[in-house]
Design a protein around this nucleic acid. Structure first.
Lengths: 338, 338
DNA sequence: CTAAACACCCAAAACGATTTGGGCAAGGCC
DNA sequence: GGCCTTGCCCAAATCGTTTTGGGTGTTTAG
């Protein structure tokens, strides 16, 4: 029952050659006569041999694996992720792009958190979404010489070249424009607390625009992983304001759902009294009453782009069809249909 | 710029001990005095040392990685997957369950297809969704002694114990019951061609029920990855039947969309003339006109279950909270709302 | 006082591949 | 004939760990 895999040595013995020759025939590295190659391949086939990726990875320090660190998701319970569209879709697209070029994609834990497994360092390169401010993970990757690609910039290091643009400002503008279009005059922002580009730049842009419009900005910070009560409380806080906002931009689906639910509970009409937009899609937003207008972040496109960028770093001669970056558009639903 | 990682030997030198001792302090295997341990840890920290997962994987033949083979998706273009909910959600849940127990999850290619990378064999165990009839991959895994878990049974090997139940028959009954409830008397079935449990058992069950009801079964087989035209043609074929079906059960989202689109094009009213149910959910089915009733396959629950089953095989002493299997229910939408 | 038990540590042999640096013939050139 | 290629092949070192099988001293038991 124990694994009894045959090694390169077994193949060599059976084919009457040296292990070197076997290695050469498979890697195409040395010079091996066609007849010998045939003998070797026959022996390998007879033994059901296939090279040990780990051993060859050790020697060549190249494993054929791309790592993916989903930052906010690590440590999350699977159940918590059930409602989030972004990560699985991103990962799926990145995985297929990698597989198409001979790499496996591995979802790994952030190796900079103390007790975590350090599998990430074994990868030939890693994709990080989304890096936090002054990210220790990026630093670690740089120190260990592991190629990386960030999805969304490290806001404390905006000059890093290895970033896939997530167009946060563009998207913020679209959302705020849309709210203005449906007549919202003083929107509030409900944003997460993690220092990631997505949150920080959205808030910055929001404040800029409010200032330009001469409107007092209202920003509520609610932790991404806070319990539902936090979102409900945020809704109450908005309603208690002296000048009640007539629109809300919630970054995460949990917050949007909580806020809308509480509004409805309190007899506030959505969208007539307050319009709501959410910054990312999720099943619950589609089936909510009313359904909630969202930003389509196009996770597949980003996943593909991130994987392609990293693959280009790993194998410069690879020909990768460039992906046209087409950034988030709005999916209009009930919560803004006035 | 080249990777200059420090090794266990460097740490040993700096701490004035042997590599053995360093290994022992980190693995907790041998006996090392607390003072020595402290010295070793200090040295490791100073050098930024972290063990090489690949080297240790080679020696211990245990990498800390679970492989996931998404059968129908391998070789697919990322764009093709964009619309499919099932795989990314399944993978996401499996990944989080694995990470929570110290394993990374790796999406790998089917190693039994000729030129494919054999990364799968490097995994400590693999999850296969969905195995085809008499699956060569299962055979390979058995031969190489790699633990595996199948999601959906191999229909030619129904006695394999390492299977996560996907309740195909139960779901088929629910769909057919629902169609009957809304007045459908002779439903047709549009099913894929891959010999996977999901397709085969559904068709079998469908035929059983039609026979019991004394209705002539109508089964159209359309390849899973066929172009859109194939689904359109299937719709036409259904319309051309002497006794036109008054309901259709399409297994895949592409087929359902194509069929509905062609029906609408031809002036057939959905659901009034023909009701339609799809066997798996996708974005396009939610936004189609009319929206299409689907089976909620609960990919997260299955992913979690599959990972848990495999983890239990890999580490029997692991305490994994049992997951209550709650199988597919229907999400009712316009295409069956008569 | 001697022998056994214990605590702590280490050298060297794996693990399974790749790579380096030749070795040995056969053939070509002068 | 001698020398240089060229074609083909191999032995041994290497990658960074873990594990095996001792080797020291220092205590404890008899």
């Amino acid at each position: 029952m124990r694994r009894q895999r045959s090694t390169i040595r077994d193949v060599a013995r059976r084919a009457g050659v040296s292990p070197t020759t076997v290695s050469h025939t498979f890697s195409g590295n040395g010079v091996v006569s066609p007849e010998t190659q045939a003998r070797v391949r026959a022996a390998a086939a007879a033994l059901g041999y296939h090279p040990d990726v780990v051993a060859s990875g050790l020697r060549r320090s190249r494993l054929g694996v791309i790592g993916l660190v989903l930052r906010p998701a690590v440590g999350a319970e699977p159940a918590e992720l059930a409602d989030v569209d972004y990560f699985p879709r991103f990962a799926g697209a990145a995985a297929l792009t990698s597989l198409a070029h001979g790499y496996a994609l591995m979802l790994v834990a952030d190796p900079t958190v103390p007790g975590a497994p350090v599998t990430a360092y074994a990868c030939d390169g890693i994709i990080v979404t989304d890096p936090v401010a002054d990210d220790p993970l990026t630093a670690a990757m740089r120190a260990s010489g592991t190629p990386y690609t960030l999805v969304g910039a490290d806001i404390d290091d905006p000059d890093d070249e290895h970033v896939v643009d997530i167009a946060t400002v563009l998207i913020a503008d679209r959302v705020l424009d849309h709210l203005a279009d449906v007549g919202v005059e003083h929107p509030a922002l409900v944003v997460g607390t993690e220092p990631i580009e997505w949150s920080v730049l959205t808030e910055r842009r929001y404040r800029e625009r409010m200032q330009a419009a001469g409107v007092e900005p209202v920003v509520l910070r609610v932790p991404e992983r806070a319990p539902r009560e936090a979102a409900l409380a945020a809704a109450d806080e908005l309603l208690a304001l002296p000048e009640r906002p007539d629109g809300v931009y919630c970054m995460t689906s949990d917050h949007a759902r909580g806020v809308v639910d509480r509004f409805v509970e309190r007899g506030i009409r959505v969208p007539d009294d307050i319009a709501v937009v959410c910054g990312s899609d999720a099943e619950s937003l589609r089936s909510a009453v009313p359904t909630i207008t969202v930003v389509d972040l196009q996770p597949e496109a980003l996943g593909r782009q991130a994987a392609a960028a990293l693959l280009r770093r790993l194998e410069p001669e690879l020909s990768l069809s460039p992906v046209a970056p087409e950034h988030g558009t709005l999916i209009l639903r009930g919560s803004t249909m006035r």
